[in-house]
Amino acid sequence: MSLIRLSSLLAASLAGSLLGCSDPVHDHAVERLGPESVRGTGPLHRAGQSCGTCHGPLGPARQDFAVAGTVFVSATSWEGASDATVDLVDSRGSSPSSLQPIVTNCAGNFWVARSDWAPVFPVRVKVTKNGVERVMKTVIGGSASCADCHEARISNPLARLGAVALFDGVNTSDAGSTSTPGCSAGLEVR
């Protein structure tokens, strides 16, 4: 066998073994999210799910999020709270809002791309809309997704919290409109 042929075989085998390397835990986490809904991929998809599972360094989504999540109007309607402002401040005092405000979309989804902001955890977070303010009691210790701790369907009530519901316990007549006309997206947790 010529040296060139042998080298080609070795290169092909190396490439094959590299491609075959995957993280089964991560693969399982992605699989558990289930298939894409009829809404398809995009900024409104998978409200309430763990964004960082796919939008992390291991993919499969292309964009890597530093922090992302969903803000709901309430834990009963599961309507996305659009146009809510999310303030994030990391341990150095750095904030992505210094570049542009982080505002939720129609589904209540928000995200900060890691290319725009690479926080040094822990991170403090506050959500506001129409004068209603929710400050997270504790810090985000290192997770990229709100849904890693905040679950719409709580799996373990001793270790998990309900989803982020901005207007729960608030007199919404004082808070004005909680939703935005034309926005109909909401919870997509299976």
Binding site: P122, T138, V139, I140, G141, G142, D148, C149, A159, L161
Partner: peptide, 11 residues
Amino acid sequence: LRCGSLDCHGQ
């Protein structure tokens, strides 16, 4: 406060 958030040692 420093270590016990649910995504860190609170699990």
